[in-house]
Simulated scan of single mutants.
Amino acid sequence: MRADGVKRAGVLLALAATLGGCAAQRQVLLGRPSAPPLAVDPPAPPGVPPAMAWLYGSGEAAALSEQAYNGMVRYVREVLTAARDRRGRLPSQRAAGTLPRWPASVVLAPGATAASAETVPCGTLPPAVVLDMDETAVLNLGYEYDDAQTARGFDQQRWERWEKAGATRVTAVPGAVAAFHALRAMGVTMVINTNRSIGNAEATAQALASAGLGAFRHGETLFLKGDADGKSGKDGRRAAIAARYCVVALAGDQLGDFADLFNPPGPAPAVGRRMLTAVAPIEARWGNGWFVLPNPVYGTGLGSSWDETFPADKRWKDVP
């Protein structure tokens, strides 16, 4: 094309753009709808946060969860078998109004310390397993998806909305459904002890059922934040549950799911909490009545400082 032709074409294009803009402005002034803008694909979200990718997407996390639940089922079966051998009677056989007398439960007694770790007696109470809910029995995939997309940080009101609306957006932790079935078949009652809100009890029970974990009733097999003593710490609820059942196993993803002594009033140094887990009476309970599920996404296990994480005498720097 000749140069004067190119110049003339450029002028015409510019004029058309100007007239188009004027026409759009007239449409707005006259109250007429303008043509919708062309659809633009939203920007691609960033990669899944590593901790979420590991917990919710990896085979390694699934295997660890299966391992914890397999260990729990095996441990509880051994406890029940020992009771049967001592008394010649299974927990579900309650003829003549008699029940096996169990050893002490795995719930620490009021006033127990890590150095003593006494547990409450069971007598002839029926056996139960007590579990935390979130990231122990169910994975909150819907909430964590929203969290990963927005990176807004934790907000209690948003979590309340999730509790009310997210019942069908959870899935069972790997291994949980099979374990719940196996333990119930042994005559064990499954009890959930969670810090979800009392006001959302029905929605919480629906979420557990949606995940395939069965039916739960508030105040009987479902205990929520504020039940028993009005506190967020779980010792009061554990004591209330232990008054009804012989708790033969506990499961959770945070140390507070086992005893409040791990979370004293005020922030506890990470190194102190880590040392508590290795005190002899406590150390012996991991895998023997107390079962921990992995959770690198949130909770009391996160936030250790450089000094707490990497002792000074174990540091190394590469010098080429």
Rank of each mutant, 00 (worst) to 15 (best):
R94Q: 11
R101Y: 08
G303Y: 08
A259G: 02
R184V: 04
G233K: 02
N295H: 01
D4Y: 02
G233R: 03
T300D: 06
G31H: 03
G303N: 09
L55F: 01
V79G: 00
A179M: 04
E66V: 09
D253L: 04
T136C: 11
V11S: 08
P121Y: 09
R217I: 09
G71W: 01
F262L: 02
S105W: 03
T18A: 08
F180S: 06
G226R: 01
P33N: 00
G272Y: 05
L38G: 09
L30Y: 01
R74V: 08
D146L: 13
Y245N: 07
T136N: 08
W162F: 07
R2Y: 02
P126W: 15
G57I: 01
D318M: 14
D4A: 11
G10E: 14
T309E: 13
A9Q: 14
N295K: 03
D4I: 12
T136L: 06
W290S: 05
G10Q: 10
G252L: 08
G226K: 06
P320T: 14
V279C: 03
D4F: 01
E118F: 06
A9N: 09
D313I: 07
V248D: 07
K234H: 09
I198G: 08
D85F: 03
A280F: 07
A44G: 03
L15D: 09
A95N: 10
A104C: 09
A207G: 11
D318F: 15
P43I: 04
